[in-house]
Structure formats: structure tokens, C-alpha cells
Design a protein around this nucleic acid. Structure first.
Lengths: 344, 344
DNA sequence: ATATTATGCGTATACGTATACCCTATGGCG
DNA sequence: CGCCATAGGGTATACGTATACGCATAATAT
């Protein structure tokens, strides 16, 4: 044992002890079939004894594969820097676990929109592909996506699947979810349904949800009133402001479908402050089923996205892209969770 | 332009265009002072034009520094795999941003306690150091920490600073926070104060909070009743169960200090179901100030930890360790946020 | 029997960078 | 005018792995 215990063992050490050459060690550990079973078993035993692990840097340098994925959050700079959209945060767990299961490391980065995009590109040296999460300035976002495509970077993003977008997209069935929400509201007798959330093409997911709502209303014989749609981004304050604007407009409404739970929670605060009784006067449905949704008063009916399925699907789609296998856009089902805010 | 546009430029490309050797490029870009200002400027210009970035794998392999930190979450396996303690999730934003600011990448991994620890060790090939976050089986945890120390791995963890622990710890002033909470409860006239949270040495942070509470009570002339302390881990269900056990014991109490907001929220549910009026019959204080704390009814008085400060402090401490600079344990102040659950 | 192919492994080398060492030209100094 | 220090940068090489190739031996075919 003249060897320093502090220096990590290399494949040469294993090779020496096993009486083979270094490449054979590499082959054995990577599962090449041109190594005899006996040799492989011996090498694996020695590697375990020495606590040997492949040096990822050397491995990546040589093979040009990092076995690492990068996760990029895109968000508008928020006033409170440490605030992150809880929905995406939940998805993080699902993604990390799937990465671990597939033997990939996950590099994470919170990208403020105003930052230099080159940081992301730089990541491509460090990762085999990128998962993009988050809303944000959509036009700016698109131009950067095009840049990614030009560079040949492999990526997949979470978002609106209906949209004919750049790159590969995985997302919830936002239209279907909107329909479910709309149908439920109609079912409990609401017909003057407001929608809080950006319905422009800046936020395709929100637009899809609105489309679904409209479709459900028309299917039931009601025409959605454009005046009852109010823009809002996914924050509590924005929802609060949008609901107040709606109240100020004087337009009567008996239900709100909010494009996210945060918006819904802000709206509930505005409505409560205005002296309205929920859900009696106004029924409310949110979107995302964040933990807080079951704590509001009344508890919030909302749409639960399949977070557990999202991570595996995103990772799988990205790995398929990386390995140049064909992948089609995939849609995850969403489910309406009925709580007190629509219980009349 | 015989060069493939798809292949990433190397330092040799830059060197050729600048009419210097490859090492000079490396020196120039790393800020070595043995490169003339003119040469450096020229190299930097060319690098920018070619969109060159240093290959991190090659760089790390050669220099044996990765400029990457690993973040390890330790949690008991939860029934819902995608559920992560919201408090640690919030800290994540703070840490990632600080890493980015210091020019470090962040590798993230959710470690189930039962998993092979070697995964973490393996990470040490990929990162210069490890940040450990989370509770979990504390004894198992400690034995693995010892292993880390043996391997010479640099790490820092979030936890109880009062404890004479293994390795470097950064954490909130849990004792002080417990004192604040206790003092506040005494101030509003409560003397029979229950504590929900593991007070054994399995959870040093919780123990510190309990110690703080006891200290405040004694300072006010009251003796804490051990029968009013109930073990609980940081989940809503555990808080619910603990509060019900407390109720079932028949011991009278007029306040609860919960070791975490999740516990507090579960306890509130139990108390409400038992027909108690909050905060009139029982005042409640939680810990963490998770977003949900301001949504409960009544809204929850709680202790806010300095999340914005935590990330920078953890990262800075770890980098100091990595660079073999001296670091002392550091304590972050915590602040009591008074809300309705203690407003009598 | 010879030709053929597969098996199992060694040899040589490349991945792209950082650093130890060496060399040259210049200027200051006595 | 010779000596040495210094700036500026070149040469050679190492980091640890993965893969293209080649070469035996053994297995199979003809």
C-alpha cells in the first residue's frame, strides 16, 4: 500500500491490480461485450474494493458526453429574489429524481431574463441538453430559443403543446383542463365566468386555458364575454389587481377561472375585501394545485397537473432528442380538484 | 473558413488567429499577469467573436478544480415522492443565485437516506464541495458525515450551530428564535405552552428551539412542563397526530410552539376539528414562514429565517473551506413574524 | 487441412486545457 | 560593456478516460 490513500484511484490502478490494461478496465466498467465475464467480474470487484469511480471530467472530455442535463428556470426578475414559482419548484423534485434514475446529473440555474444568454450556451459544454422551465418575456424567450436551435443545442421545454413552437415541447393538456373547469362552473350554474390571466400570445399556456374555458361555455350554449377577461401574470399581487380592476369595471360576474393558483389567491383576497361571499357570490377555480390551495378559505378548487409524470416525460423526451431518436410532442392529462371555492 | 461551424472552437483556434501559442491563450483568459495587455485584449476580442468558452471538462481535468458545487438534499423517503420541504426549496433560490454570482455551477441531487452514500462521494469528482441540506435520520446522517470527513471531502451543512458537530455548520439562531417565540407567548399571557417537535438529539435544530422556549419561560418565572412536549417530524400529518395526542392526554394548554410551519398547520387542523377557537383558546407559533403561513386561518405567527442571507453564507463558508481559509461557525438571526394566531 | 470469423485484449492516441520549465529580448545597473 | 533581473511567451507534458486498430488465439466453416 505505498499508494496515498488521499489520491483517488484511477483506471490504471485497477488495471494493474487486475493484471490487464487500462482500456480493458474502461471496457469492463462500461459494459462492453468484448470483455470476458471472468475478467469483468474481477475488475468490478477490485473497483468496488478501491472505492473507484470513473472521473467524470476525463470521461466527458474523451467521449464528449457529459451525462448531465441542465435545468434552466426562466423568470422575470421578481422583487423578492428568493421567491420562485412554487409550481416549478414542485416539478424540480420530479425532474431530479428522474435524472438520477436514468444515471444523469442535473445542473441547475436560475436564469434572469435580462442576463446574457451565453451563460446558457456555455452550459452546453457542461451538459448534453437543457430543460427549459418557466414563463417570462415570451418574445425575448423565443428569439433565444431560435439561437439555441441554430447552435444545435438539444433542449426540451415545458409549455403549451398546442402551439406550433420552436423545439420540442412537453406540457399539460391546458385546453382540456380549461374545458373541465368551464364545464364544472357551468354545471354549478355559473354563466358569467371571468378569466384572469394573460390571454395574449405572450403566454400560450394561459391562452390555451382560456380557449378551453370558452369552448366549454359555448358547448353549454353560452358566449364568453371578452370584457370578463383580464390580463394577469402569475403572482398574487397581479391577481389581486386584476380582480379589483374587474370589480371596478362594474361588469357582473359569478365565477372566476384564474390561470394560476397565485392569481386565484390574489383574486380571493380582493373579492373578500370587497365584501363578497365565496363561493356564494363568486365561485373560483385556480390552476396548479400548489400546497397553499388547500389552505385558503374557502379551500381552492383547482387543476392539478401531473407533476409526477412531468419529470420523467421531460427527461425522456430530452434524452431521445440527444440520442437522435424520434420524439413527438406529448401531452399530460390534468385533473380538476373540487374544493370549497366551487361548492355551492 | 474551412472550419466546421458546428464544432466548438478551442483555445488552439484562438491561438492560431491571434498568432500566439495555445498556453498563451489559456493564460490570457485566466488573467495571468505574464501576458501583455495588448496580447490579452486581442485574445479576448477573438474569443468573443468566435463565441469561445473554456471547455469545463478539460479545464477541470487538468486543474482538478471543477468550479462546481453540489447540493444534497437529505430527506426521509416521503409517501409522495414529489413533495419537498418548502423551506429548503426556498433556500434553493438563494443558493443558486449566490453560486452564479461567484462563478460556480450548482449540481443538485435529492438523496434518499436509504440510497448508497457513494453517490455523494462520486459527486466529489464532479464538484469542489458539497452543501448538505435537510433533516432525516440523524444518526445515520452523522455516520455518513464522518465518512465524508475521512475522505477529505469539503462540505458545509445547514443545521444547528450550537451543537458541537462534525464539519462546518451554518444555521439560524434557533435558541434565540425559540426565546423570542416563548417571550411573545408569555407576553400575551400564556403559561401552559406546548412544544410540538422532536426534542431528542435526533433533531438538534428542533431541540435548540425547544431549549429557547424553555429558557424564555424560566426567565419569566414559569417552569416548562415536559408532558407538554410531543415529538413530531416536519410534516402536516405528524403535526396533526401530535396535537391530537396532546388533546387526548387531557393536559391543559393554552399555546403551542411548533418546530415548523408544517407541524403548526397540521396542529391547527386538529385543534379546529376539536372545536377550539384559535387563538382565543390556543395561541400558535410556527417556524419557517413558508408561503402557506400567511394563508391559514387564522394566519400563522411564525419565525422567519434569513433565507436571503443563508445562500451567500453557506456558499461563502464552503468556498472558504475549499480554499483552506479559516472559517468559523456562523449564526443567522431569525425574526418573529406576528400574525393572527397569537393576536388576542 | 486451410480459410474464415469471432473473441478477448493490448497499443496507441485523442479529448482541450493548465502549468512547470525554459528561452529570448530588453533594460537597468555597476 | 558585461551581468542579472524581468517581462513575455514558447515547448513539453499531464490530467484520466474512451475508442480506433491491430493482433493473437480459438472456434467454426469448407
Amino acid at each position: 500500500m505505498g499508494r496515498q490513500p488521499s489520491s483517488k484511484p484511477t483506471s490504471f490502478d485497477i488495471a494493474y491490480l487486475a493484471g490487464v490494461s487500462q482500456p480493458t478496465v474502461s471496457r469492463a466498467l462500461r459494459g462492453s461485450k468484448s470483455v470476458s465475464a471472468a475478467t469483468r467480474a474481477n475488475i468490478e470487484r477490485i473497483a468496488r474494493e478501491l472505492n473507484y469511480t470513473v472521473d467524470k471530467n476525463a470521461s466527458s472530455l474523451r467521449s464528449q458526453r457529459t451525462h448531465t442535463l441542465a435545468l434552466l428556470f426562466f423568470e422575470d426578475p421578481t422583487p423578492d429574489e428568493s421567491m420562485i414559482n412554487p409550481f416549478f419548484l414542485s416539478m424540480l423534485g420530479s425532474i431530479t429524481r428522474e435524472c438520477a434514475r436514468r444515471g444523469y446529473d442535473l445542473l441547475i440555474s436560475f436564469q434572469q431574463m435580462h442576463n446574457d444568454w451565453h451563460v446558457a450556451y456555455q452550459d452546453s459544454h457542461r451538459s448534453d441538453g437543457i430543460i427549459l422551465l418557466g414563463y417570462g418575456d415570451y418574445q425575448l424567450y423565443l428569439s433565444k430559443l431560435e439561437h439555441l436551435v441554430e447552435m444545435g443545442t438539444k433542449f426540451v421545454r415545458w409549455g403549451s403543446v398546442s402551439e406550433e413552437g420552436i423545439g420540442l415541447t412537453v406540457g399539460s393538456d391546458n385546453v382540456g383542463a380549461g374545458e373541465q373547469a368551464g364545464a364544472h362552473l357551468v354545471e354549478i350554474g355559473r354563466t358569467r365566468i371571468a378569466f384572469l390571466g394573460d390571454a395574449s400570445d405572450h403566454a400560450p399556456e394561459f391562452q390555451d386555458r382560456y380557449d378551453g374555458l370558452c369552448r366549454a361555455m359555448r358547448a353549454a350554449g353560452y358566449e364568453p364575454d371578452p370584457a370578463l377577461q383580464r390580463d394577469a401574470v402569475s403572482t398574487e399581487d397581479s391577481g389581486y389587481a386584476a380582480a379589483n380592476a374587474l370589480l371596478a369595471s362594474g361588469k357582473p360576474f359569478d365565477a372566476i377561472f384564474a390561470a394560476s393558483d397565485l392569481i386565484a389567491i390574489g383574486a380571493m383576497r380582493a373579492l373578500t375585501e370587497a365584501g363578497l361571499k365565496l363561493p356564494h357570490d363568486v365561485a373560483i377555480i385556480g390552476f396548479d394545485d400548489i400546497p397553499a390551495a388547500s389552505l385558503t378559505s374557502p379551500t381552492l378548487t383547482t387543476v392539478m397537473q401531473d407533476l409526477k409524470g412531468a419529470g420523467p416525460l421531460l427527461v425522456d423526451a430530452l434524452l431521445s432528442r440527444i440520442e437522435n431518436r424520434a420524439v413527438e410532442q406529448r401531452i399530460l392529462p390534468a385533473r380538476l380538484i373540487k374544493r370549497q371555492s366551487t361548492a355551492v
